[in-house]
Amino acid sequence: MWPSQSTSPAWGWAEAATLRLLFSREPRFGGQSQHLVPGRYDTSDLKIPNDSISSVDVPKGLKVTLFEHSGFRGASAVIKADTGDLGASSFDNTASSVEKI
């Protein structure tokens, strides 16, 4: 249930389950999407196809790191707030792995 989870967040797991993150294939949270609880998610853990994340909905108090390659490698971008269109950044349709804390 907690892919590659290496550390516990400051809150309990039951509370963490309510702090969901939404990744979408289309700008402005459209198209195929996936909700994730805090953890580390490699390419095989994501239901959205590789290199297709276009928007990220980040709950207040959390942050997301998008990684260019699987295995949490390559260039990365930290997102601390809702981003309805990654098109203005270099990470539109680029992320292959994700860390949410």
Rank of each mutant, 00 (worst) to 15 (best):
S76F: 12
A81S: 15
S55D: 11
D85E: 00
P3E: 01
V58S: 08
I101G: 15
A77S: 11
A10R: 13
F23I: 04
W13D: 08
D82I: 00
A95S: 13
A14R: 04
H69L: 15
G74A: 05
P38D: 06
P27E: 02
S44M: 09
S4Y: 00
T94Y: 05
W13F: 01
T83E: 13
K63N: 07
I79G: 02
A75H: 08
V56G: 02
I79H: 06
V64M: 05
I48P: 10
A81Y: 09
L62E: 09
S55N: 12
R28F: 09
D57H: 14
F23S: 04
S76C: 12
L22W: 00
T94L: 12
T18I: 02
S24V: 04
G30Q: 13
G74L: 06
V58C: 08
Q32L: 14
H69P: 08
G12R: 07
D45G: 07
A16N: 06
I101K: 13
G84T: 06
K47I: 11
S90W: 14
N50L: 12
W11Q: 10
D92I: 05
S54C: 07
S33M: 04
F72R: 13
S76A: 12
D92V: 00
D92T: 01
D42E: 07
A81Q: 15
S70N: 14
S8H: 03
M1Q: 01
A75G: 03
V98N: 04
H35C: 05
A17H: 04
S96P: 00
S24M: 07
F91T: 00
H35E: 14
L19S: 00
K100S: 09
F91M: 05
V98P: 03
V37R: 10
T94M: 10
E68L: 10
K80A: 06
L36F: 00
M1L: 08
I48W: 11
S89W: 03
R40K: 13
G12F: 04
D42W: 07
P49E: 10
D85Y: 11
A14K: 05
Q32C: 07
A17R: 04
H69N: 15
A17S: 04
Y41T: 04
S89Q: 04
D42T: 00
N93S: 10
K60S: 15
W2C: 01
G61T: 14
P49H: 11
G39S: 07
G30I: 02
S76I: 06
R25N: 03
I48F: 10
R25K: 09
S6M: 03
